[in-house]
Amino acid sequence: MNLSIRKISAILQLKLQSIITNVSIMVAPLLAIGFVLIMKISMPKAVMTGAFLLSFGVLFNSIMGGIMMGSYPLAEEKEKNTLRVLMTSSVNGAEFIIGSIIPSILMIILVNIILVPIAGVAMSKINWPIYLIYTTLSGFISIMIGYIVGIYSKNQMQAGNISMPILLIFTMTPMFQMINKTIANIASFAYSGTIINFINNMLTKSYSANFKDIAVLTIWTVLSILIFIYAYTKHGLDSE
């Protein structure tokens, strides 16, 4: 399969515009920022620690935002019959996916950086290389999950219905890990759980990259790519 930089750049510009103008996609990153701000202002500082606020914001942005940024635009393109137009205008699946994923990833990275000062965390407290790698990887996994949802959805409503339980599982499991040991164990094997543990440890104790966290994120990355490739090979992006 040939890749054309010209076509990828055209898709990238198109996707950037459609992400910015689509409220249903922008809702997750905006809510992440909004909720963190509101909780920081309205709740007691003893409860709303920087670690909690940042974990909450990153979870909302990378997990919820990522899945929505993957599934909704793909479903919207199918619903409005524009994906078929692109595919019959010389764009191939790989060019479409690469051109679509870059603006979503950039948006996730940008919001994850903005969230640090908004959560009241000192910039110096962040282990930036690991923070950026982990949160970007989790965003990438979420976008891949979103694309898989998008492949199986005919329209945005269906994408919403399919992605809702997935969103809940990945965002709620790490949140409930404090109340139950079994949930905590399960969460540590979920990519969202790894992110939460990393942020908490980085801000409350100290964190150094360990085998388990790297393995969990790597396995999720590979797994999401493989499932995506399977779904794409079997159904295409917009199969008849």
């Binding site: 076509k7 750049s9 055209a10 515009q17 409005k80 524009t82 078929r84 205008s89 010389s90 764009v91």
Partner: peptide, 20 residues
């Protein structure tokens, strides 16, 4: 055949000048 509803008429064609 779909068009990009949120883009202008010109922008709708501009994307395809790049693609093609």
């Amino acid at each position: 055949s779909g068009i990009y509803d949120k883009l202008s008429v010109y922008k709708n064609l501009e994307i395809f000048t790049k693609l093609l």
